[in-house]
Computed example of a mutant assay.
Amino acid sequence: MDMLKILHNPRCTKSRETLQLIEESGEMVQVVEYLKTVPSEEELADIINMLGIKPEQLLRKGEAIYKEQYKGKNLSDEEWIKAMVEHPKLIERPIVIKGKEAVIGRPPENVKKLIG
Rank of each mutant, 00 (worst) to 15 (best):
Leu4Tyr: 00
Leu4Thr: 06
Leu4Ser: 07
His8Phe: 14
His8Leu: 12
Thr13Gly: 06
Thr13Leu: 09
Lys14Cys: 10
Ser15His: 07
Leu19Tyr: 04
Leu19Arg: 05
Glu27Ile: 11
Met28Gln: 15
Val32Phe: 08
Leu35Pro: 08
Thr37Ser: 14
Glu41Phe: 04
Glu41Cys: 06
Leu44Tyr: 04
Ile47Thr: 06
Ile48Lys: 00
Lys54His: 14
Lys54Asn: 15
Pro55Cys: 15
Pro55Asn: 13
Leu58Thr: 06
Lys61Asp: 06
Lys61Phe: 06
Gly62Trp: 07
Glu63Gly: 05
Glu63Tyr: 03
Glu63Met: 05
Ile65Thr: 13
Gln69Pro: 07
Gln69Phe: 13
Lys71Gly: 09
Lys71Ala: 15
Ser76Gln: 01
Glu78Gln: 14
Glu79Phe: 08
Ile81Tyr: 03
Ala83Glu: 00
Met84Thr: 02
Met84Phe: 03
Val85Gln: 06
Glu86Pro: 02
Glu86Ala: 07
Pro88Trp: 08
Pro88Leu: 07
Leu90Asp: 13
Leu90Cys: 11
Arg93Val: 13
Pro94Met: 14
Val96Met: 08
Lys100Ser: 00
Lys100Val: 02
Glu101Trp: 05
Glu101Met: 09
Glu101Lys: 15
Ala102Thr: 00
Val103Cys: 04
Ile104Asp: 01
Ile104Phe: 02
Ile104Lys: 04
Gly105Asn: 03
Arg106Leu: 00
Pro107Ala: 02
Pro108Tyr: 01
Pro108Thr: 04
Asn110Leu: 09
Ile115Met: 03
Gly116Ser: 15
Gly116Ile: 12
